[in-house]
Design a protein around this nucleic acid. Structure first.
Length: 586
RNA sequence: GCCCCCGUAGCUCAGUAGGAUAGAGCGCACCCCUCCUAAGGGUGAGGUCACACGUUCGAAUCGUGUCGGGGGCACCA
């Protein structure tokens, strides 16, 4: 609808350019917006105000000329120049009416578009280290990333969802060692568990699996394991040195293959759990990309060599540094440590290089806000390698705070008192969790009210929207019971009977849906969709209270049934994009 | 110290690429089912858009500065 108005204006602009009223250079794309007030018509455009200066014509005069140059169109009833030079468009009733059969016939595809033109875009999200279950912080990234991906797909992008699995590195070694130590305890050995190890119950579970399936086959005397290991922090030593020494000793005692076995077991159990958890949350991926394959395939070395060949790295005090300051970073960053191991950052450079090499035109990373310091250096690396850093879009998601009974739920990884995503899902349900997570802009701190998310009341936005959908279903059931056919008449037949203000408001909202999906997708702002659905549901509920749908007058009844069928479809499509169910009854 | 985000109604937040009289929900005060689910609806009170200066025909929106809140600044992952 908006696009059609914009097209008309573009044609008028071309006409005026040909007539030399407007200078040919630098004509902006006309910005059409929804009029905020009905007395300003349906759409408004400020192009005359914008162009007045360069055309050296008074805004109102320019507006008049544009209006005169507008081609005829059956959607537009009349056009007015108002205020300082706004052009207001008043659309015909038919322009709105034709949306109703469209929504009903197009069903699931109503509101979708192809503005993405099949461009390949990768969305990487969650990517939590597989060292334990996902917690509520990851949940927000999961919900947000999933909806952004779905929105982009809905507007015609070729979306590739990816989870980057950090299956290499020290944290994973700490995990493997933690599991093995717990296993040794299950083999009736006594030891002091390292303060820096993973202490969650799930570590015991994995150790128990190892013990159940392999008995004491992986057991070693503990005194051998701890012999001459530097003291742990509680014993007055350094927890990092302590755990690193334990890892090295574990590898030595178990040997490569057996250590690998414990490592893989831990990794697979946790990764399966994460995968399962996300799937139950309605979040799925096209690909789980292993960090290890990045090293094994030589991509990391290749990235480093690429930087070297472009003279973007230098050696200093035994390490290899990337000149990220040359690209706006605040300090240079190490890519290969003094001990010869590459840093996590080096793998990240390789990963992003690989993403672009795989042919994605746009790459979106969803990160926790605590990683924001990472953005400049990753972009710097892409630029240094000769890529366009603007192809990478990093979306930072702020943390979510849970509230229960008006009190903030205290969470800290250290004390092990963090709430897992699974627990949250169990408590408030998938629908509420998905909706609440994306209700706010991602850069906004999120206050997640658990009581509200659980409440079955109008205060709860999820139920409110779902209830509107269920109510439509209920009306249709009611019709069936009364022996009234809810089968709508073809096309726009009878829709001219919709003359109530409530009905016009609903038609107007329906006409906004497509635009809304587009702006939500382009701006990566799912909260706009939440907001919209709430408004649409509100208009429906108001309508429901004010008017009977299943009236005696068959033509009016048909028109109303068609209208609510269209509303039902849009509610369903919108909820579906959010990963929230649209129940038939509640 | 440097960097990022935020500051709009009592509370939680919108404000659609600067636009015509700043919006919603909650809370508060009233009111509405002999009627398709009251898990609903309506009416009302409530704002110096943190502050100052600047850009513009026009600023909650853009720029600079100040104040206030949150987060980040590893040869960790």
């Amino acid at each position: 609808m908006k696009n059609q108005v914009a097209k008309l204006l573009s044609q008028a602009l071309q006409q005026l350019t040909a007539d030399a009223v407007i200078p040919a250079d630098g004509i902006p794309v006309p910005v059409i917006e929804r009029a905020r007030e009905s007395r300003h018509g349906d759409f408004a455009c400020n192009i005359a105000l914008v162009l007045a200066k360069s055309a050296r014509v008074r805004p109102r005069e320019l507006a008049e000329k544009l209006v005169a140059a507008l081609p005829q169109n059956q959607l537009v009833e009349r056009v007015e120049v108002a205020g300082p030079g706004f052009i207001n468009f008043y659309l015909t009733a038919d322009a709105y009416h034709r949306l109703v059969p469209q929504a009903i016939e197009q069903g699931h595809s109503f509101g979708r578009s192809d503005i993405g033109r099949g461009q390949r875009v990768q969305v990487e999200f969650v990517s939590a280290n597989p060292t334990g279950p996902l917690h509520v912080g990851h949940g927000r990234g999961a919900a947000y990333g999933a909806v952004v991906a779905d929105l982009l797909e809905a507007v015609g992008f070729d979306v590739h969802r990816e989870y980057y699995v950090n299956d290499a590195g020290r944290q994973m070694d700490i995990l493997a060692t933690s599991v093995w130590l717990r296993y040794l305890e299950l083999c009736d050995q006594e030891l002091v568990f390292p303060s820096n190890g993973y202490k969650g119950d799930y570590i015991w579970d994995i150790a128990a699996t190892l013990h159940r399936e392999h008995g004491a086959a992986y057991s070693h005397p503990v005194d051998e394991l701890f012999r001459e290991i530097p003291a742990d922090e509680p014993a007055g030593g350094d927890k990092e040195l302590h755990i690193d020494a334990l890892i090295a000793r574990s590898k030595g005692l178990l040997g490569d293959n057996r250590y690998r076995f414990v490592f893989e077991l831990a990794l697979n159990v946790i990764l399966d759990d994460i995968r399962d958890d996300l799937a139950l949350f309605g979040v799925t991926y096209e690909e789980w990309y292993s960090e290890r394959t990045l090293t094994e395939s030589g991509a990391v070395n290749r990235a480093i060599e690429k930087l070297r060949s472009m003279d973007q790295v230098y050696e200093s005090s035994g390490a290899l540094w990337f000149r990220s300051t040359a690209f706006g970073d605040e300090k240079d960053r190490v890519v290969v440590r003094e001990n010869g191991q590459h840093t996590y950052f080096a793998a990240d450079i390789a990963y992003h290089m690989d993403k672009l090499e795989r042919g994605f035109e746009r790459v979106i990373d969803v990160w926790g806000a605590d990683h924001h310091g990472y953005v400049p250096r990753v972009k710097a690396a892409l630029e240094a390698m000769g890529d366009d850093p603007s192809r990478l879009d990093v979306l930072l998601v702020q943390f979510a705070n849970l509230y229960r009974g008006g009190e903030k739920v205290q969470m800290s990884t250290r004390s092990g008192s963090f709430v897992t995503l699974r627990e949250l899902r169990k408590e408030v349900g998938r629908d509420a969790a998905r909706f609440f997570y994306v209700m706010r802009k991602c850069e906004q701190h999120l206050d997640f009210d658990l009581d509200l998310a659980k409440s079955h009341s109008a205060d709860n936005p999820v139920y409110y929207v779902q209830y509107a959908h269920a109510r439509v279903c209920s009306v249709l059931r009611q019709a069936a019971e009364k022996g009234i056919s809810a089968e709508p008449s073809p096309g726009t037949e009878n829709l001219d009977r919709l003359t109530e203000e409530h009905e016009k408001a609903l038609l107007s909202s329906l006409s906004r849906y497509g635009e809304l999906v587009e702006t939500s997708a382009i701006n990566k702002e799912p909260h706009q969709l939440c907001q919209y659905l709430r408004e649409l549901a509100n208009e429906f509920h108001t309508y429901y209270n004010a008017h009977q749908f299943l009236v005696e007058d068959g033509r009016l009844r048909d028109a109303r049934i068609k209208l609510i069928l269209a509303v039902q479809q849009v509610l369903r499509n919108g909820l579906n994009l959010l990963g929230v169910s649209a129940p038939e009854r509640m």
